[in-house]
Design a protein around this nucleic acid. Structure first.
Lengths: 246, 246
DNA sequence: TAGCCACCTTGATCCAGGTCAACCGCGGAC
DNA sequence: GTCCGCGGTTGACCTGGATCAAGGTGGCTA
């Protein structure tokens, strides 16, 4: 077991990989980490865990998209988070997860068994800090989303979702390109509806309306072209001040 | 500067106080902590910070209630969090705060200057762990709230809010009392509306409806009596499985 | 005692988005 | 090829909650 192996792991920006090449870490720790780290793959549509079930690992998304969602007894469903590559899944210190996790597209996770990971958190402050950082980001995103869910119109909701996915899928340069840019929508209309607190019919209608108004173009159902990103952002109802920001 | 002073600080369950009496901590750290810790008070209705303004401290709520909210340019407002005693405010590693913080009732915060606190996080893993724990709890609560905002009816939203406040204001024993229990509502109808993504008229109507149906009794506008907690929870639309849980 | 103001309630009407239903179009199985 | 089923679109109609408007109530000041 020697050092280089930690550097060519392809984990996206997973916090552990960062940790593995951190010069302040002791070698023992790295060896230990490597021994508990493994990969898991899921097909699109496949469940990762159900709400209430124990989750014996924590993980980061390497490739693909996963959704976190809650379902009421009568079937009403709300997506409460979308995990894109580099996002963290799982809760150290708690065995069960309180929402359903589903692979939206084909998905690969980089996993760590939960118990050893928790031990690591106690002894390695860097990992905890990194994780705290990520959790705070997620909290900010969740709060941002509460404004979308609580106060925005259907059209504004759609525009908000598209602009968020566009930002995460495209480089800053692409967003600013004068002739626009395109991206793939990893979600079905139904999944979009679940995320936005709408019905799929309303999603479909508003997508059509945004198309008719020239805010977006559709190249097939799942590919969106944005001729002018500022125009899309203007439809979100947000302050345009942070147009190219977080 | 001697040790006892750290033990009789009344900070609720503020993570620092816990830290201060933690046997694993070094005395230097405690002295340091004490030197950067101070209290701030706000009158009901007073702003603590506006979105985008720098916040030079992090804090925990000692007494009172604070709200976190976001406002759109046209005035639509969404409350995105409610801080009750022991809750944490502020974001280590970021200067500005992205939402308005307002004192809902008279409020006292236990504050730490941000820079020294960040230094402390680096050197004292216990504080970071404790904070991560709290942040994860807040994230869970935020996600729970997304279901409320996105999918629940007005009546279910009101019932959800009442049951959450009831849980935090009352002991487990009180919740189970066969003759019911009462609690003070720290929010105006307008603040409730902001939290729930409703108008204040709808809040008022649904409060009246719940009263008419015997789910709650009103002892004045701001005091709520719950004759049967299970009946209230049944109105939230949630699975009743965790009736007395988190 | 009156008058004011912040907070709350209630009524009448409107409309965004939900519901129900029909249909389209494409890819995969046979 | 043809069929089928899934994902998407569009239309017609309905309704829950928003909007607009008019009081009510209780605590404070003068």
């Amino acid at each position: 077991m020697n050092a280089p192996v930690f550097n060519n792991r392809d984990c996206g920006s997973c916090p552990i990989r960062h940790q593995a090449i951190c010069s302040r870490c002791e070698q023992d720790e790295l060896d230990y980490l490597d021994s508990v780290k493994y990969y898991r793959s899921y097909d699109a549509g496949q469940p990762v865990v159900w709400a209430g079930d124990p989750l014996d690992f924590v993980a980061t998304v390497v490739v693909g998209v996963a959704s976190l969602s809650q379902t009421m007894e009568d079937g009403r469903r709300q997506m409460i988070g979308l995990l894109l590559p580099s996002d963290f899944l799982g809760r150290p210190g708690r065995e069960a997860v309180s929402y359903d996790v589903t692979a939206v597209t084909d998905l690969t996770l980089c996993c760590f068994r939960r118990k050893p990971f928790e031990g690591l958190l106690k002894t390695s402050p860097h990992i905890g800090q990194r994780l705290l950082e990520k959790t705070l980001d997620e909290l900010d995103a969740a709060r941002e989303w509460m404004l979308v869910l609580g106060r925005k119109t259907a059209r504004e909701k759609i525009a908000s979702l598209l602009s968020i996915i566009a930002r995460r899928a495209s480089s800053l340069m692409a967003l600013k390109a004068p002739d626009g840019f395109a991206f793939d929508l990893p979600l079905t209309r139904e999944a979009m509806a679940d995320y936005l607190g709408l019905t799929l019919e309303t999603v479909s209608r508003q997508m059509s309306a945004l198309k008719k108004d020239g805010v977006i173009q559709l190249e097939g159902n799942r590919r969106v072209r944005v001729p002018d990103f500022a125009k899309l952002v203007a439809e979100t109802g947000d302050d345009a001040g942070d147009l190219f920001g977080g």
